[in-house]
């Protein structure tokens, strides 16, 4: 975005939002179909996230293109999520390095 420079606070906020690109990756829609969701987990079961299991299963096989990232461009996309309990937000966006 070198040709357009945001110069006030509002423009900078908008630019920061779009900078976190979600190309080919409608993960939030995907998540909604999985229940009960990681957030109902307890201390006894610290990694109950059904996403993680389903995500890794569907990563390769999923028929819906929107559910998976562009793995050619973002081969290491899951690296941002070392711990699903702490880092789950990172799954929903891909840094736009372009």
């Amino acid at each position: 975005m070198s040709r357009i420079k945001p110069i006030n606070t509002k423009a900078q906020k908008i630019a920061e939002t779009v900078h976190r690109d979600v190309r080919g990756y409608a993960f939030s829609d995907c998540c909604a179909s999985f229940a009960p969701g990681w957030e109902v987990g307890t201390g006894d079961n610290p990694d109950p996230c059904p996403w993680k299991h389903d995500l890794q299963l569907c990563w390769v096989t999923c028929y819906w293109m929107g559910q998976v990232p562009d793995t050619n461009s973002y081969g290491s996309w899951l690296d941002t999520c070392n711990n699903i309990n702490d880092d789950w937000r990172n799954l929903c966006t891909i840094p736009d390095n372009g």
Partner: peptide, 11 residues
Amino acid sequence: TSSFYELDATT
């Protein structure tokens, strides 16, 4: 949005 941008001539 009341956002304010500087543009280059091509843009």
